[in-house]
Amino acid sequence: MNANLAIEARGLSKYFGDLRAVSSLDLEVPRGKIYGFLGPNGSGKSTTIRMLCGLLTPTEGDATVLGTVIPGNSKALRPKIGYMTQKFSLFGDMSVFENLQFISEIYSYPAKDRSTRIGELLLKYDLRDQRDQLAGTMSGGQKQRLALACAVLHHPELLLLDEPTSAVDPQSRRDFWSNLFRLAESGTTIMVSTHYMDEAERCHRLAILDRGVKVADGTPQQLQASTGMHIVEVVGEDPYAAQAALIDVPEIVSVTQLGVRLRVLIPISVSDPTSLVLQALAQHRVSAAAEVTHATLEDVFVAVTLKSAERVT
């Protein structure tokens, strides 16, 4: 076990009957980093996170989390982990303060420091005005801040966040991420699952999951550099016609429309992707400009999930 790794998973798998929710997942999450877990719904993100904190028993494989082997003594692990569930799981009929107090008691936070710590969290997560409000009556963003405050109350070494931003507005998401960066700077390892590309781009490292299989792994820059695809951006007056012209070209693996622009993915083996695109457009008498551009994470995502779909079929 590498001491610099917070999580090391080896061949982690979980089957629910015939459904392979996660298959032979290898993971290396470095300490003190924000590790992203990107994938569509049903790709096995939640299942993986639940296995890592001991909520689910892996069907095969194991993982070392903060030096503890899973499956096994997850009890020893609990005080070191903070977990934020996908669905709001605090007590709606208790106030913000009462929820924080309950969590502090459950984690046996030193009694004399409790009120100081709760005050600190109320301030840090901007919940002072909601201190005595029932948690169930708060907005999505407020609930999410409370959930994060509760998850970090006991100073966990590892924070597992299961799609924490799926129910909040963009401003709240931005604030949430600046909180995560602050936590990572102070040494907390964070594993966060998401299906937002812009969030994935903020992670130090990330893994892309598709149908339970890890299809890519690395820093966002590495992933963008290693798509194995040319990205050709096509700008024209009639993107529909352009798309129709390009979709049947055998070398083109994907055409995605973004407003008036089209992003066209062509394998790296094609030597001159721009002229391939322009030729196809000219054949269909569509006038548009085309140029090669850098891959975004979305392109990476499209490219790797396409490959994985080919492998399945």
Partner: peptide, 12 residues
């Protein structure tokens, strides 16, 4: 209500 998922992840 989902409370249980939170509770069983605590030392309780």
């Amino acid at each position: 209500r989902g409370n249980l998922e939170l509770l069983i992840n605590t030392p309780v």
